[in-house]
Design a protein around this nucleic acid. Structure first.
Lengths: 240, 240
DNA sequence: TATACGATTTTCGTATACGATCCGCGACTC
DNA sequence: GAGTCGCGGATCGTATACGAAAATCGTATA
């Protein structure tokens, strides 16, 4: 993952020594987004503490931060579990991401350089390569990773740090709830790549902010719609 | 403040005893949004702990949660301070709020009842009353409170809990950084009331979601623009 | 007088200890 | 035999204690 700092992490480059609380946070965060800790898994403070060779106090703080980010749920006197089992959660997360990512992409657009565009195109071509050989053993995980890399290039220059962080959080949540949309609806992959081209063209030729936002938002909404169509579900709430 | 639960607060009504960590969180949250703790104020853990008659450990947790919400900033080995001094912070917060509140209002619209509309109209009339007597001693604080009440009615039915929480956080941040826009640009108040009417009409007649979103977003952006025009500043970043 | 250095103080960071709460299992009663 | 009560293990919640880092202030020196 290229440019995807742990959302909310202080991550000051010059920080000499990371506090243990920070270590615990990073370790847990990594375990969760990498999928080593599956959704629903219990997080026992003392066990985590022992594993990292620290006391429970820093671990508690780390868990609280993860809770605020929505990566874990916490119940008083019961404990923490890795969040994200519920499928409606997936819907809400995708919808929120379409909102904030659309905005972030639009706000980034004016600052995106020709090099950025070129880099994004390169990533998109690598995604296309994933498609070609044989539609049958398509690798949704690798494809999704590239997908994030592609979009990262386009939204990382967002000047509004709040919105940018919301985008990071959204992506992290999605990564935590394993199986991306592309696992369920591989057909969507090809269309996605085409929309990426369209988006790049738009940015390249300096299209109005509002238009970039709309296209970026729809791009993600379309992925969500594909998922819904596949599961035969009804959103249960209005679409933006 | 009618419907404005502390964002992210577990707040289960049946929770018999609130943990001390929870108490500390609520107390600090209240102090901050009410303005009793001004932006920039230092939060010394031991002092807060003593004041609440608890140990520092629960206070630390509370501060971490507030940090994740953006109400306080935290520096390693230095301590926590109430966030929100920077004027650019204000810009970013308003911009983010315009994004998420616009969406929340649009998503709520289909669920808004005739009673809701009536309630909102009533609030808007009370706002108008604030205006009438004499433009000179206009009360921006009271006006802002009503303003939040008005908008609360329109976005609280948002079915996406993530987006709704983001809206709450945005409003809380704004409240923390004292002096609303209306303090600086009282002229904006009158126009704001008119836009409220317009928004209500739109929702009442079941306008398309996208239109509601646009109007709600612009309504907030316009307040931001008024502020910028007043300070003579340039956004420094694109507008949505 | 300005500056650099070092001691002191303040405050944070973490470990350890102990009480409180919840959950599961077995015994007792109807 | 089914349901309920009570006990014990597991885990969380918080207090206290001590070490570490940073800020502050005073002093000595150029």
């Amino acid at each position: 993952m290229t440019a995807a700092p742990a959302a909310g992490a202080p991550a000051s480059p010059g920080s000499s020594t990371a506090s243990k609380s920070e270590q615990a946070y990073e370790w847990l965060h990594e375990q969760i987004v990498s999928g080593d800790l599956a959704p629903g898994a219990r997080l026992v403070l003392s066990q985590v503490a022992e594993k990292l060779d620290v006391s429970v106090v820093p671990v508690r703080e780390a868990v609280r931060r993860l809770e605020a980010e929505g990566l874990v749920t916490f119940e008083k006197n019961v404990g923490a579990t890795v969040a994200g089992i519920d499928p409606t959660e997936y819907l809400f997360t995708m919808q929120t991401l379409s909102l904030v990512e659309g905005a972030a992409t639009a706000l980034s657009a004016p600052s995106v350089t020709a090099e950025d565009i070129a880099a994004a195109r390169a990533v998109n071509e690598r995604m296309r390569a994933f498609l070609d050989p044989d539609p049958l053993h398509f690798d949704p995980v690798g494809f999704t990773a590239l997908n994030r890399e592609f979009h990262s290039v386009l939204f990382e220059r967002c000047p509004n740090p709040h919105i940018l962080e919301l985008v990071h959080r959204g992506w992290n949540r999605l990564k935590a709830l394993r199986g991306s949309t592309f696992s369920y609806v591989p057909e969507r992959a090809a269309q996605s790549i085409e929309e990426h081209e369209q988006l790049l063209d738009l940015i390249e030729r300096g299209a109005p902010t509002s238009e970039v936002e709309l296209v970026a938002r729809r791009h993600r909404s379309a992925t969500l719609d594909a998922y819904l169509a596949h599961t035969g579900e009804n959103p249960g709430f209005p679409t933006l």
